[in-house]
Amino acid sequence: MQSDNRIFDDLAKLVNGAAGTIAGMGREAESTARARARDWIGGLDFVSRDEFETVKAIAIAAREEADALRARLDALEAKAADPLPTA
C-alpha cells in the first residue's frame, strides 16, 4: 500500500507542476498579447480628445461663416438682378 501512495503523490506533484507551468504560459501569452496590442495601437495616428474638440469647434465656426457669406452673396445677387430704378 505504501508504494501506491507514493505513485499517487508523484502523480499529484506532476499534475501540480504541469498546472503551474500552464498557468505561467497563460500569463506570459496574455502579457505578450497586451504588449503587441499596445504597440499596434501606439503606431496608429490617433488624436487626443482636446485636439478633436478644437477641430470640431473650428469646423462649426467655419460653417457658420460660410452660411453668413452665402446669405450675403444671395442678397447681393438678388440686388444685382433687380432692374435699376429710373430717375
Rank of each mutant, 00 (worst) to 15 (best):
M1F: 05
M1Y: 02
M1R: 06
M1C: 03
Q2D: 07
S3Q: 09
S3Y: 04
S3H: 09
R6H: 05
R6S: 08
I7S: 01
I7V: 03
D9W: 02
D10F: 02
L11W: 03
A12H: 01
A12R: 02
A12F: 01
K13C: 00
V15M: 06
V15D: 02
N16G: 05
N16M: 02
G17Q: 01
G17P: 00
G17A: 02
A19K: 10
A19M: 10
G20N: 02
T21R: 10
I22M: 09
G24L: 00
G24F: 00
M25E: 07
G26C: 04
G26L: 07
E28T: 01
E30T: 06
S31T: 02
S31C: 02
T32P: 01
T32N: 10
A33K: 05
A33R: 03
R34I: 11
R34A: 12
R34Q: 13
A35S: 07
A35P: 00
R36L: 14
A37T: 10
R38Y: 09
D39R: 07
D39F: 06
D39T: 08
W40P: 00
I41Q: 12
I41Y: 10
I41D: 04
G42E: 10
G42T: 07
L44N: 05
L44S: 06
D45N: 14
F46N: 06
V47C: 10
V47P: 03
V47A: 12
S48R: 13
S48F: 07
S48D: 11
D50A: 08
E51M: 03
F52M: 09
V55P: 00
V55L: 11
V55G: 08
V55Y: 08
V55N: 08
K56N: 09
K56E: 09
K56Q: 10
A57W: 03
I58V: 10
I58W: 04
A59M: 08
A59R: 13
I60S: 13
I60G: 09
A61L: 11
A61C: 08
A61K: 12
A62R: 13
A62M: 14
A62N: 15
A62H: 13
R63C: 15
E64P: 12
E65P: 07
A66Q: 14
A66N: 14
A66P: 07
D67R: 15
D67C: 15
A68V: 11
A68P: 03
A68Y: 11
A68T: 14
A68I: 11
A71E: 11
R72Q: 14
R72I: 11
R72A: 15
L73P: 01
L73A: 14
D74R: 13
D74S: 11
D74A: 14
A75I: 06
A75C: 04
L76N: 05
A78Q: 14
K79Y: 12
A80H: 09
A80I: 06
A81H: 13
D82P: 04
D82F: 08
D82M: 13
P83H: 10
L84D: 13
L84P: 05
T86D: 15
T86H: 15
T86F: 14
